[in-house]
Structure formats: structure tokens, C-alpha cells
């Protein structure tokens, strides 16, 4: 594998967006890009990552390779990332290490790190990425992040309801409750403020607040978040990157007994 990002902070943002959710991951590298799936220890949150060749300045992968890493170690190396540096990832045919090469042509500086790979035996789940959903919402990632931060302070459960009035985020804590209603809107001047809802059924689902606080860490990857809900499947919170690919978080809901 030889894969070069023209801006090393892209890879840092991707890794930082889920390093607190899962501790280790297998990157599956192939000619169609880098993909990964990992489940958190409690098996409630599943992270699904896709970095297609379009995200790289150059991308080459001669044969499918699995690259297993501890995210805390990788994240330490990526503290060197800066927007003026490129980052190339190298993995040999018989991989036992990942090489990261940062290059700043303006500063005539290059930095090289090597990281030992780890054998990770991870359960893979058959998650349907084209899952049918009762409700799809596209909205501002900044808005969603603010709502999650504000409301999760009040309760460890966070409820999302979608009906004819719009989308309602609510919490009902021991000492306080809160509710935010958003209606569809189109802002032609600032499309990142758009909110669209398509729905075949109303939904009313609850999630544990702590996972939502992890999910919003990925909001640095995209201006928009796409939400998919259905009564029978985990919800999908997805941040799509400008150059293709992105990160999706599948979150299992909480139900009444």
C-alpha cells in the first residue's frame, strides 16, 4: 500500500473521530480504497469507515492487505499532522509495520514514523450499508452537535422523534427536561444550514447519551450529518466527506421492556 494525503490533517481528523469509541481496528486496504469496521466494547456502537481513492492525492494498493492498529498509538503519531504537510502511508507486502511519512515541502522537512501492526481478531457484523429506513434526515452537523451537547447534560437518555411537525430531540432527566424542534428548511445562501426530512413512518427512538457524545466527535469531517432511523434496526449517523467516503456510526437503541 502506498497512499498519500495532500493534507495530513484529513487522516488525523478521521482517526480522532472514532478513537474514543473503539480501541483497535483492522483497516482493509484494497484497490477500491481503505475500509474498516469496528464495534465498541459494549457492542452498542458500530463504526464503519470508508476512505476511497478519491480522498488521496495518489493511491496504490497492489493486493488486498489488512492493517491492524491500536488507535491510541496511531493517534499519538498523528499529533504531528499539519495542513501544510502531506502524509503518505506505506505498508509492505508481508506487513508487520505501518510507515507514516509526513513531508512539508515549504519547510524542507520530513518526518517518518513506524508503527508495529497488531493481529486483531475482530467480529465482523453483516451490516447493510444501504439499509432501508423509515426516516432519513439531512441536517447541519454543527446544529446536531450543539443539540447533543446541550441536551445530553440533562439526562443519560436522548430521544429522537420524527413526525409531521419535524424532528424533535428531547431528554427527560431527574431534575430537568428539554426539547428542540426543527422543521425542514432550505437556505440557498448557506446550504449547510439546510434540513430535509423524508419519511414513510413516524419514529420515536431513545439512545444512550454517552454514545451520541462520541458520535459528534466526527462532525469535523463534514458540514452535514445524515441520520437514518427505523423501528427495527440500529440508527445510522453518517458524516460524508467532501472527497467521497466517510464515517457511519450504527447505534443500537434503548427500548422499553
Amino acid at each position: 500500500l502506498e497512499a498519500k494525503f495532500d493534507d495530513s490533517t484529513i487522516f488525523k481528523k478521521i482517526i480522532d473521530s472514532f478513537k474514543d469509541s473503539v480501541s483497535q481496528i483492522n483497516f482493509m486496504c484494497s484497490e477500491s480504497g481503505i475500509e474498516a469496521q469496528a464495534i465498541d466494547d459494549s457492542r452498542v456502537l458500530l463504526v464503519s469507515l470508508s476512505i476511497p481513492p478519491s480522498c488521496f492525492e495518489t493511491y496504490r494498493c497492489d493486493r488486498p492487505t489488512t492493517v491492524g492498529v491500536y488507535l491510541s498509538s496511531l493517534s499519538k503519531l498523528l499529533k504531528s499532522a499539519s495542513s501544510s504537510a502531506t502524509l503518505t502511508l506505506y505498508v509492505e507486502d508481508q506487513p508487520d509495520e505501518l510507515l507514516l511519512l509526513f513531508e512539508e515541502s515549504k519547510a524542507s522537512k520530513s518526518m517518518e514514523y513506524k508503527m508495529k501492526l497488531v493481529d486483531i481478531t475482530a467480529d465482523m457484523l453483516e451490516v447493510d450499508s444501504d439499509m432501508k429506513s423509515d426516516v432519513s434526515v439531512e441536517m447541519s452537523g454543527v446544529e446536531f452537535t450543539k443539540i447533543v451537547r446541550d441536551l445530553t447534560q440533562l439526562s443519560d437518555s436522548f430521544t429522537v422523534s420524527v413526525g409531521k411537525d419535524g424532528i424533535v430531540f428531547s431528554v427527560d432527566g431527574e431534575t430537568a427536561s428539554g426539547k428542540v424542534l426543527l422543521q425542514p428548511k432550505e437556505d440557498l445562501a448557506n446550504p449547510e444550514n439546510n434540513l430535509s426530512i423524508s419519511m414513510t413512518k413516524t419514529i420515536d427512538l431513545s439512545f444512550a447519551s454517552k454514545y451520541l457524545l462520541d458520535i459528534i466527535k466526527a462532525s469535523t469531517l463534514s458540514n452535514m450529518i445524515s441520520l437514518k432511523f427505523s423501528e427495527e434496526t440500529p440508527a445510522l449517523f453518517e458524516f460524508k466527506m467532501e472527497k467521497g467516503g466517510g464515517i457511519g456510526f450504527y447505534l443500537a437503541p434503548k427500548y422499553d421492556e
Binding site: 464495534i39 459494549s42 457492542r43 452498542v44 456502537l45 458500530l46 467480529d123 465482523m124 457484523l125 453483516e126 451490516v127 437518555s157 431513545s206 444512550a208 427495527e232 434496526t233 440500529p234 450504527y250 443500537a252 437503541p253 434503548k254 427500548y255 422499553d256 421492556e257
Partner: peptide, 14 residues
């Protein structure tokens, strides 16, 4: 009180 479901309640292992 609500019960937290897990991914294994919904998806099969590959």
C-alpha cells in the same frame, strides 16, 4: 426504565 440493546440483537456475525 429502558433496556439498552446491542448490535448482536440485530445483526449476524459474518
Amino acid at each position: 426504565e429502558k433496556t439498552q440493546f446491542t448490535m448482536d440483537d440485530f445483526y449476524e456475525l459474518i
